[in-house]
């Protein structure tokens, strides 16, 4: 029974460096909201039982209480502001390009959504996109483990959304624009890349795969791919 109420347990396995930061926020909010919910329900049900109609007892005439109003306004404001402040560093780290990590070892790839596939374009040996040695694969994203991956995200037609549940990444892909996305996978494996934004009749089946390789396996894949 508890399994159905324990939201954090339902998060997909996290396999990225920043995923833990996001999950921690989720867990924090989970506990705050769970406690608030239980407290409110306890009071509600308690009052419902205690103050139910009884013969001969009249309701008390109470119009309100300024102290209480001020208290609960202030407490709620502090909690929600606190949450906003706590989440700011996470957000900046994940989404603001000027704060992305960057080193020469990083991997670069272009991902382009089109009804109803993900085109993954790799820059090839020269490390530059838009040159002759680029390689485009449909729906297969290959990256090495423990390396920062920079994604240049775009779309050819409608809006799609690049969703990596296990990396805690989601970013809409917009036609006519390129958006920078990054992640750093910490676990070798094959993960799904569904499209999360309604993009037409094939939306449901629009699915790519993220293949996170060990360094050796990745080197081997590179060798095969640009043979």
């Amino acid at each position: 029974m508890l399994k159905w109420l324990n939201f954090p347990e339902w998060l997909p396995e996290n396999a990225s460096t920043f995923g833990e930061g996001v999950d921690n926020l989720f867990v924090l909010i989970y506990w705050i909201t769970a406690i608030v919910f239980i407290a409110v329900m306890a009071v509600l049900i308690g009052f419902m039982i205690k103050y139910r109609f009884k013969e001969g007892r009249k309701a008390d005439y109470i119009e309100g209480s300024t102290t209480l109003e001020i208290t609960w306004t202030a407490v709620t404001t502090v909690i929600v502001f606190g949450l906003a402040m706590l989440s700011l560093p996470q957000w900046n780290r994940l989404k603001i390009p000027s704060q992305f990590p960057s080193s020469p070892d990083d991997v670069l790839v272009q991902v382009s959504g089109k009804q109803f596939n993900w085109d993954m374009t790799y820059p090839g040996p020269d490390g530059k996109l838009g040159t002759d040695d680029d390689l485009t694969l449909e729906n297969q994203l290959h990256v090495p483990v423990n390396k920062v991956v920079h994604v240049k995200l775009t779309s050819e037609d409608v809006i799609h959304s690049f969703f990596l549940p296990n990396m805690r990444v989601k970013q809409d892909a917009l036609p006519g624009r390129t958006i920078d996305v990054w992640f750093d996978a910490t676990k070798v494996g094959k993960y799904e890349i569904p499209c999360a934004e309604l993009c037409g009749f094939g939306h449901s089946g629009m699915l790519g795969y993220l293949n996170v390789h060990t360094d050796d396996a990745y080197a081997k894949w590179v060798e095969e791919a640009w043979k």
Binding site: L25, W91, L94, K95, K170
Partner: peptide
């Protein structure tokens, strides 16, 4: 909470 929304949005 925008970072949490990354995962649960849509």
């Amino acid at each position: 909470n925008s970072p949490v929304d990354i995962h649960i949005h849509d």
